[in-house]
């Protein structure tokens, strides 16, 4: 008897859990749509900005931007983007594994590491490991706001200009498609890629650089009015592009998080369904056994009387 009641109770609680996980799955699906839209909404801004940077750097006479040159001194900064909430499968685990590997590598190469962590899960994990966290932020919500992200970017860029940090890498969950996300490292500072285009033109290879870049923007041969001068314009454009790239990391991470939660909750719902089936089977068997026993008792009693 006791066993039967126990089974009923367990089945009930598993049913409740399944309701919760299913709801969480639905919520994650809805949020994922949102996050995905946000991630794609950043694309036009980012590509236009990249074109502008390319145009300005091509025309700039000298490039002594602090964000472009490599800092000799300073520590290696690592920015790890994790989620604030759990229930998203291996999402945080995978990011933190990559982050720890990089951390060990840098330490092995005798570099000081400046650790910046976003998200409660990452903060908790690294604190547990006894790491000193230089900057932590758990206020970024599921839909990152540009203002928040640009504040983080500004702080890090200021540190870079003061040569406190030599490099800045972002460790985040790259969103490749709805089916594929993988933890990735992105070098944010010093800014690379721009150097080459301008490096070529600075070295007198300007014809070569011009033809190479022409198909990208289609305006390499036309003269552009700059206001203010290209070099001065780059003072503003480069930080803007760093902010934007970081913002894209955040939006991608947010979309990946929702996918991870969707998948994890789908698995949990399915597992709960399987468990319910098993418990129902067990319960029915227990009930049947009990009935058979009772019948046997009655038959036995009748047999004894007659």
């Amino acid at each position: 008897m006791a066993n039967r009641r126990e089974l009923v109770k367990r089945r009930k609680s598993v049913r409740n859990i399944r309701k919760i996980t299913r709801t969480m799955q639905l919520i994650a699906t809805a949020r994922f749509q949102h996050a995905m839209n946000q991630a794609t909404a950043t694309k036009p801004y980012a590509s236009t900005l990249a074109n502008m940077v390319a145009a300005a750097s091509r025309s700039a006479t000298q490039l002594d931007q602090p964000l472009l040159k490599t800092n000799e001194s300073g520590s290696a900064a690592l920015l790890v983007l994790t989620s604030n909430r759990g229930f998203c499968g291996g999402y945080n685990g995978n990011i933190l594994r990559l982050a720890m590997e990089t951390l060990q590598e840098k330490r092995a190469a005798d570099m000081d590491v400046n650790l910046n962590v976003v998200g409660k899960k990452g903060i908790a994990y690294l604190r547990f490991l006894g790491e000193t966290i230089d900057m932590k932020d758990d206020s970024v919500e599921e839909q990152p706001r540009f203002a928040q992200v640009s504040a983080i970017a500004d702080d890090l860029m200021a540190a870079y200009r003061e040569e406190k940090i030599a490099t800045l890498d972002v460790c985040y969950m790259q969103f490749i498609s709805a089916g594929i996300q993988k933890p990735a490292m992105m070098r944010l500072l010093p800014i690379s890629g721009i150097k080459q285009a301008t490096g070529d033109s600075d070295d007198g290879d300007s014809d070569n650089a011009g033809t190479e870049n022409a198909p990208q923007s289609g305006e390499a041969n036309t003269t552009i009015d700059f206001s203010p001068e290209p070099a001065e314009l780059l003072d503003e454009l480069l930080p803007a592009s760093v902010r934007m790239r970081l913002f894209q990391c955040f939006t991608e991470a947010a979309a990946s998080e929702q996918v991870a939660r969707m998948v994890a909750m789908k698995a949990a719902t399915d597992a709960a369904g399987d468990m319910i089936r098993l418990l129902t089977q067990k319960y029915n068997r227990a009930r049947q056994t009990a009935i058979t026993m009772e019948l046997l008792d009655i038959i036995g009693g009748v047999a004894a009387i007659s």
Partner: peptide
């Protein structure tokens, strides 16, 4: 609203990049 005053733009303007 450019950084140093307003700039009016019509069709056919030469390429411009400004803050």
């Amino acid at each position: 609203p450019a950084h140093d005053g307003e700039i009016g733009i019509l069709r056919g303007r030469a390429p411009l990049l400004c803050r």
